[in-house]
């Protein structure tokens, strides 16, 4: 339903997208992951026909998005990244009714649909309040409601949960999941990596305009190479910073280790050297008469994979 093939786009000397491909099938949620400036928003804008690619092509429902006929726009929903896409001098309800009418609904249909959506996104109480008085999170929820006005076949969401509290963000993901379950293809651009687990079907990770990874969430996790661990250590003679010299002696150059700031006296942060293996380090500690009570990664494996691929890993 959504297909980008070899899309490249420059803005002056800056390469925003370089040979990016993306396919989203019916009923599928594909997360577009990447740090700021990775090219997520540009790709979303290419897919909506708001930006013309220099090379390659983008097709939605089999139609080239640059031509973007009205029939195609009628079946697409967009949640843009910024707040500046609503009429701030009129109410949330009037915003939805206006855009509903531009989607071809009659005033009565648009009003009924607007009320339904305001209830879905939890804005019933603020329906008649000027949207300029809304918080960023409320404006984002209104923007999401607008994208749902006509039950789109293709939904493109750019940083939907950026301004939302965890509860509202979860509710939005549930809404989007529901739409995908009814057959819509969803592109979910985000830099909040923790939200893609159990939500996105596949991930495309962009780094400085290039695809750094494309595959399932479990494939992404497999790319993770965790290097930082939090250890809980016990030694009958010393604890906390007093134990640090003995620990350093035990592990040598294979890692660095330090007591966790603000932690209790048993927690230490271990940072493995590039060629070191965790098992060897733990064995050295045990041999030095230190009990390893617990060991866990400092980051989730998904975060670790993200940082490795996006170039932010240590």
């Amino acid at each position: 339903m959504v297909e980008a093939r070899g899309v490249s786009r420059r803005f002056g000397a800056r390469v925003a997208l370089a040979d990016v491909s993306l396919v989203v099938d019916e009923g599928e949620i594909v997360a577009l992951l990447g740090p700021n400036g990775a090219g997520k928003t540009t790709l979303v804008r290419v897919l909506t026909g708001l930006v013309k690619p220099d090379d390659g092509s983008a097709r939605v429902l089999g139609i080239d998005t640059w031509d973007c006929p009205r029939e195609l726009r009628a079946r697409m929903g967009l949640v843009p990244s910024g707040d500046r896409s609503l009429y701030l001098r009129i109410s949330g309800l009037e915003n939805l009714v206006f855009f509903g009418r531009l989607h071809g609904l009659s005033r009565r249909e648009a009003t009924a649909r607007a009320w339904e959506l305001l209830e879905l996104v939890g804005l019933m109480e603020a329906a008649r309040v000027r949207s300029g008085f809304y918080s960023h999170g409320m404006q984002k929820r209104l923007s999401i409601a607008r994208a749902f006005l006509t039950e789109p076949s293709v939904l493109l969401i750019d940083e939907a949960t950026h301004d939302l509290d965890p509860e509202a963000a979860a509710a939005m993901r549930e809404l989007v999941r529901g739409l995908a379950d009814r057959g819509a293809a969803v592109v979910w651009a985000t830099q909040r990596i923790e939200e893609i687990r159990g939500f996105a079907d596949r991930v495309t990770l962009l780094r400085t305009g290039e695809v750094a990874f494309s595959g399932s969430v479990s494939d992404l996790i497999a790319v993770a190479v965790p290097r930082r661990y939090v250890l809980r250590l016990r030694n009958g003679r010393a604890a906390g910073r007093e134990l640090e010299p003995a620990l350093r002696d035990a592990i040598g150059r294979r890692a660095t280790i330090a007591a966790v700031e603000d932690g209790d006296a048993e927690h230490y942060l271990l940072h493995l050297a590039a060629d070191a293996v965790l098992g060897d380090v733990l064995a050295s500690l045990t041999a030095a008469d230190v009990d390893v009570v617990a060991c866990r990664e400092e980051r989730s494996e998904i975060e670790s994979a993200y940082l490795n691929l996006a170039g932010g890993g240590e």
Binding site: R70, E71, H103, G104, L105, R113, T150, P152, S153
Partner: peptide, 28 residues
């Protein structure tokens, strides 16, 4: 999947003009 079947055509374009007028009246 089925959409809410929005109308697309010259007639619906004319009806949209009324929505613009209402929006601008409310803003004014």
């Amino acid at each position: 999947m089925t959409s809410l079947a929005p109308a697309v055509g010259p007639g619906s374009e004319l009806r949209k003009l009324a929505a613009f007028v209402r929006r601008d009246f409310l803003i004014a």
